[in-house]
Computed example of a mutant assay.
Amino acid sequence: HEDSLRYYCDTCDESICRDCIMLAHKDHKYNLIADSFTKHKEALEKCLNPVKGKIEGLKKVLSALAEREGEIRERGEGVLEEIHEMVEEMIAVLHQSERKLTEQAKRVTDAKLKVLSEQMKSAEMSLSILKDVEDYVEQSLKTGSPQQVLRSKKQMMERMSEVTGGINVEELHPKEKADFVLSKDIKSLHHIGDIVTYSSTALQQCRVKKIDHITPAGKAVSFSLSMEAPDSSVLCVPLSSLRCSLVPVGKGDEPIDTTVTTTSTDPGVYRIQCNPSTSGTHTVKVQVCDVHLEDTSLVIPINPYLDNITPVRTVTRLKRPWGVAVTDDNML
């Protein structure tokens, strides 16, 4: 180019000089460099907006990832602390069981040794008596004159008969045996828990397994609830992660709050208590963490608010059993 590149060919997307306009770029669309720069700058800035949007999005993602990393590390430390506390509790229980078993073993041992001790005293006393009789008779035979021996023969015979007759050697054989053992039951110690992750995907496959033991208590009603994991095992979650509410079917959408408790005797079984305003079918809504499980239904057979029922009219002409139906609004 003999002239400076003061123009920009939009057709070829390159800078050109004045001679190029008349030769290689004849009939092409072109503008001054300054004008083309302004136009293309705006286009580039417009194309840059999605890039900036992605950058901001990725910054938020990185921030969320860092925050989640902190939460996971904190949860991991919390779980390790829970494991330590659980093991410490188990060790305390084991020490308590050790003391209990030790005392039990000592009681059994002492009881058996007491019986043996009494038998031993009786045997030693009997042996002493027999030895005395034996020594007396042998001494008489050794040192006494024939006249003395014959004179005391009857007395010695009676004494020996009396002594031997009063001692039953068979009864003095050991009555107790070393027949006590430790009955071990440590199966549960080989598996004291699992680390369970409650991912949304896994929880969405869980379901309410069973609702039973519906128990009225005044104006409150309680029932037990258990959940099933995808592998058909009982789902156990912390109470802080479980929410449950009841919604009367066909009587408004206002949910009834519940109180959820659990017991150490039935892992995975939760006791739900609430104060329903009416009887009939209710939808049970269960939420684990942030996942709603599939709804199930529960029939509350009584109206807890009908404490005293006064008959409106007595039918006296019925002479045989008749069926009686009661609607949800308590009409016959």
Rank of each mutant, 00 (worst) to 15 (best):
S4Y: 15
L5C: 08
Y7L: 14
C9I: 03
C9Q: 02
R18E: 14
C20L: 01
I21Q: 12
M22L: 14
M22W: 13
L23C: 02
D27T: 13
L32E: 03
S36G: 04
F37L: 11
T38D: 11
T38W: 11
K39Q: 15
H40C: 07
H40N: 15
E42T: 09
L48F: 15
E56V: 04
L62N: 15
L62P: 02
E69R: 15
E71A: 13
E71R: 10
R73Q: 14
R73I: 07
V79N: 11
V79T: 05
E81Q: 14
H84N: 08
E85Y: 07
I91P: 00
I91F: 01
V93E: 09
V93P: 01
Q96C: 06
Q104R: 08
R107T: 03
D110Y: 00
S117L: 04
S122Q: 15
M125E: 13
L127F: 09
L127S: 08
I129H: 12
L130T: 12
D135I: 13
V137E: 02
S140E: 13
S145N: 08
Q148R: 09
R151W: 08
K153G: 09
K153W: 15
Q155D: 07
S161H: 03
G166N: 15
N168S: 09
N168K: 04
V169P: 03
E170I: 02
A178K: 08
D179E: 10
F180L: 05
V181I: 12
V181A: 06
D185G: 05
D185N: 07
S188M: 05
H190M: 12
H191Y: 11
V196N: 05
V196C: 01
S200R: 11
T201V: 14
L203R: 04
Q204L: 11
R207W: 12
K210E: 14
P216V: 01
G218S: 07
S222M: 07
S222K: 05
S224P: 00
S226D: 03
S226C: 04
E228I: 06
V234K: 00
C236A: 00
L242Y: 09
P248D: 06
D257L: 03
T259S: 07
T262Q: 14
T281F: 15
T283D: 09
K285E: 07
Q287L: 10
V291F: 02
H292E: 12
E294H: 12
S297F: 14
N303K: 04
L306N: 10
R313C: 14
T314L: 08
T316Y: 07
W322Q: 12
V324I: 09
V326K: 02
V326Q: 01
V326G: 03
L332K: 06
L332N: 01
